[in-house]
Amino acid sequence: MIRSLLFFPGNNPNMLINASALLSDALIFDLEDAVSPAEKDAARILVRNTLRYMDHGSAETVVRINSVDTAYWRSDVQAIIPERPSMLLLPKVGSASDVRELECEMARVEAECGMEVGSVGIIALIETALGVENAFQIATSSPRVRALFLGAEDLTADLRCKRTKEGREIEYSRQRLVVAARAAGIDVYDTPFTDVNDDEGIIKDAMLARALGFSGKAAISPRHVGAINDAFSPDEAEIEYAFEVIEAIERAKAEGKGAIALRGKMIDAPIVARAERTIEMARALGLGRRKA
C-alpha cells in the first residue's frame, strides 16, 4: 500500500544510500528533472546499482525515467528493468500512445533478461493539459498502468496559470484524475507540496488530497513523509467505527435481520465496503483498535 512517494535525485549518493530509512512507502529514484543532461549516464548507472545492491525493505521502488520524446528513455529502460523495480514513473504522458510505446520497450527488455513480461508496472505522470483531458484513456491504456500521478508544477505552466499554495488552479485536474483513475480501478497520487518549511501547509494539503479521493501523495522533502503517511492512514476513530460496522453486520446476520442501523444511520453495502477497506489498511499498517 502506497500512501507516500518520496523523490530522490538520481545522482546523489548521500541521499540514495539512506532512502529506505525515511519511512516513505515508495521511493522514486529520479533520472529526469533532478539530473542534468551531462550526468544522465552517471545517474542511470548509480540508480541501477542502488537497486541491485541496496535492500529497500518493504518500500516499493519506483524509477522516474526520461520522457518518450527524449534521447535517454530507451537507455533508462534497458538499464533499470533488469533490476526489477516495482514500477517506472513515466513523465509528461499526454496520451495512451506514450504509455504503449514505453510498454513495448519494457516487454522487450523483460523478455530479453528472462523476466515475466508485464512484471514491472507503470505510473503515468500527468503534467500537461492534454494528459489531463486524456486521463481515462491513459489509465486504461495498459494493464501495467497501476496509477495516475498529478504533476502540478509543469501542468500549471502548460495551463499558463500561477501555481499557488491553495491550489485553486489545479482543482479541476485533481478531480479529473481521481475520477479517471477510480473509473479505471487504479490508484492515484497527488502532486508534491513544494514549500519544505511550511509544516502546517503540508498537513492541510495532504488532508485535502485524501478528502478528494487520492490514494497517496508524493513528496520532494523527507520532512513531508510523516504528514502524508498520517493523512492517508485511518485514525483511531475511523478504525473503531469500521470495527463497529463489521460487528453490527455480523450480529445482524446471526439474528437473521436484514437492514440494521449503527449510531442512528442505516448501514448499507458501500459503508461495509469502506469499513472493510479501513480494517484492511489498519492491519497492513499494524494499527490496532484502541479498546480490545
Partner: peptide
C-alpha cells in the same frame, strides 16, 4: 562511498 556507489562511478568513468 558505499561499494555500490564506487562501482557506479568507476563504470561511468570507464564508459
Amino acid at each position: 562511498a558505499l561499494e555500490c556507489v564506487i562501482r557506479a562511478r568507476v563504470e561511468t568513468a570507464v564508459r
